[in-house]
Nucleic acid binder design. Sequence first.
DNA 1: CCCTTGACTATCT
DNA 2: GAGATAGCCAAGG
Length: 112
Amino acid sequence: MSRFRDKFDHRVWNVVAAIPSGQVMGYGEVAKAAGFPRYSRMVSAALGRSPEPLPWFRVVRSNRTLAFDPGSDSYREQAQLLKQEGVRFDGVKIIEAETDNSLDRILWGPQE
DNA sequence: CCCTTGACTATCT
DNA sequence: GAGATAGCCAAGG
């Protein structure tokens, strides 16, 4: 058995389970919070191994886009679940805090 | 042991 | 801003 994977998995699950609704975390952020900096690529594997349902959809890329191929079922599922929690999108980009003060885009939608 | 594979990232062009 | 490139690192063949 893999001690490493067991510990890693559990820590990742704890972190992800603690992400508040309506918020998101990057793979790298989760890894770091779990105590494993540089293990961003392992996070996705850990999510897939979770025996319990996790808010996996709250984990996104560092650039705040979804990790799945746009157009895939998984992508649509994740986007839908997030929107359901009030997360807003600027195209494929997640708007979390109105970091970009483009109120225009929020009112008028993407690009126009 | 070598090679490939990722729900990844940071850094160039 | 889109690509390419190079790190990253456990797992599985």
